[in-house]
Nucleic acid binder design. Structure first.
Length: 260
DNA sequence: ATGCCTTGTCGCACAAGA
């Protein structure tokens, strides 16, 4: 089964593009971030017409995540545990039953953290601590478990066209990268790095300054697989061409194939 | 160096993104 993640940068502005990609890519499960919509206004009917079950965790104007699945989504959980005062909609998780057992999927939109020196950066790091704690508990289930989404972390210099330009950015701070490593070192496999060591493997190109035309990209959208999910991995990919479509998101879809 | 674009908003400029 194909499981994908994509930061769509606004579902209202991107609906036609999202529908076109769903029909082309045909993922069994899709995790969407930055829907920028409350649940009531999410265009669920148009997506349901393509055969998907739709679960959303939205808020007004900003953030917001959604889970799509051609099989029923069970045990849906909204919000990342660990801080009841956090009102930002950045996490949704659900379970899908397949012929070969269950797969649980967490869809996340990790805080950007910029600009440094504001409360936004410690919020990012605190959110990552909560994600690490949650992931650690999930690994105890010993089932195929995936954490997909916009991590807003550039893991390594090779994950940026111009790493020297990101020194003062929250996405490339040592603390951000260290916490990402702590997360993976719990026992997750980072799908894209397990599939390819090709240089200039990016998932985001800024709208500004001709970043796409210059391939001035970064790799910040990631798929983490529990050991049980990693054992099933049969391939992965990045739908880079979608960035060249009309009215594109600044991110492109990333996906993994599981033999499940 | 800043803004370069893009999106959403009780719009007509601004915040937020990365």
């Amino acid at each position: 089964m194909k499981i994908a993640t994509w930061n769509i940068n606004g579902v209202k502005a991107r609906l036609d593009t999202v529908l076109a990609w769903l029909q082309e890519a045909e993922p069994e499960i899709a995790c969407l971030q930055e829907i920028k919509s409350v649940d009531e206004n999410f265009p669920r009917e148009a997506i349901e017409e393509l055969g998907y079950n739709v679960k959303t965790h939205g808020q007004k104007s900003f953030n917001g995540v959604a889970l799509l699945s051609n099989r029923p989504l069970e045990d849906v959980q909204r919000g990342l545990p660990g801080d009841d005062s956090d009102e930002q909609a950045r996490f949704i998780e659900g379970t899908v039953s397949t012929d070969n057992g269950v797969v649980r999927v967490g869809c996340l939109y990790l805080p950007n953290g910029n600009p440094l020196g504001t409360e936004k950066f410690p919020y990012k790091l605190g959110w990552m601590d909560r994600l690490i704690a949650h992931a650690k508990r999930r690994l105890d289930d010993e089932i195929p478990y995936l954490l997909l989404g916009d991590y807003n972390v550039i893991p390594d210099p090779m994950d940026a066209k111009n790493p020297e330009n990101w020194g003062n950015d929250a996405l490339f701070q040592p603390e951000s990268r260290q916490k990402f490593r702590t997360l993976t070192h719990l026992g997750f496999t980072e799908a894209v790095r397990a599939c390819t060591d090709a240089p200039e493997t990016f998932t985001f190109w800024d709208y500004q300054a001709g970043a796409w035309q210059k391939n001035n990209g970064i790799r910040i959208d990631h798929i983490l697989l529990s050991p049980q999910a990693s054992d099933l991995m049969a391939g992965c990919g990045i739908d880079k061409h979608v960035r060249g479509w009309e009215k594109p998101s600044d991110h492109v879809p990333v996906w993994v194939n599981l033999a499940a």
